[in-house]
Each structure stands twice: as structure tokens, then as C-alpha cells.
């Protein structure tokens, strides 16, 4: 699934991103696993965002067990990610990104993110 940010946000202007959705058998009771996938051709970078790790993992409460609701669907998840990107003003990775990416052995769903930052 490719997504674009439709606003003229200078950070993501003219970029397209590739998302991977993985659905468990228990969907929609359980959330799907959603990550950005970097590709070289066509160019699909992992967007620069304080909540997106460079391995494509997305820190979004919607995708965790606490924030997920069975009424969500692929469309609403895409829209949430789009709005997360378009509302961003900081072209940077999350704090501790390098360490996290190097050491993390868990799948996105099992990582215990703490959703403390309500500003972005």
C-alpha cells in the first residue's frame, strides 16, 4: 500500500511511502501489524518523523493493543498515518533510534511503546 501526504508539507513533498499491513487471524479484534518498507525502485523511503524508526516501525497508539479498536480499517489507519505525517514539523528520527533499531528483536506489536508525546 503506497501512501502520500497530500498537504504541501515541505518534509514529505513529492515523496511516496510504502506501507506493509500484516493481518492476524484475529483481525479486526487484533490490530494489524503496520510498518513502512524502504524500497529503492520505485523510491520508497521511510519517512522522517519523530515517531517512525528508521527500520519502518511506527509508534502510533492506534496500532497497539491499547489504542486499537475493531472499527478501524485499512483506510482509517492510512488516514491516521497521513495525518501523523502531515502534522509533523520536525524532520528527525525518534530519540534513541539507532539503539532501538540495532537492538530491537521484537515485532512491532510486541514493542512496548509509551505514548507520552501528544504534541505530534
Amino acid at each position: 500500500m503506497d501512501i502520500r501526504v497530500l498537504d504541501p508539507n515541505p518534509i514529505y513533498l513529492d515523496q511516496t511511502f510504502r506501507l506493509r499491513f500484516r493481518f492476524s487471524n484475529n483481525y479486526p479484534i487484533e490490530s494489524p501489524e503496520v510498518t513502512f518498507i524502504p524500497l529503492t525502485s520505485p523510491p520508497r523511503p521511510v519517512p522522517l518523523h519523530p515517531h517512525v524508526y528508521s527500520n519502518g516501525y511506527i509508534c502510533l497508539d492506534l496500532l497497539g493493543a491499547s489504542g486499537w479498536s475493531p472499527v478501524q480499517n485499512v483506510e482509517s489507519v492510512c488516514m491516521s498515518i497521513q495525518s501523523m505525517l502531515t502534522g509533523n514539523v520536525k524532520a528527525e528520527r525518534p530519540p534513541g533510534d539507532e539503539d532501538f533499531v540495532r537492538r530491537n528483536t521484537l515485532r512491532p506489536r510486541d514493542v512496548n511503546f509509551v505514548y507520552e508525546d501528544a504534541t505530534v
Binding site: 519523530p50 515517531h51 509508534c59 525518534p94 530519540p95 537492538r103 514493542v111 512496548n112 511503546f113
Partner: peptide, 9 residues
């Protein structure tokens, strides 16, 4: 401080 805080976001 070298222990990465994976909870940090």
C-alpha cells in the same frame, strides 16, 4: 545511558 530506552517515543 547506553541502555537504549525502547519505550521512548
Amino acid at each position: 545511558s547506553t541502555i537504549p530506552n525502547s519505550d521512548d517515543t
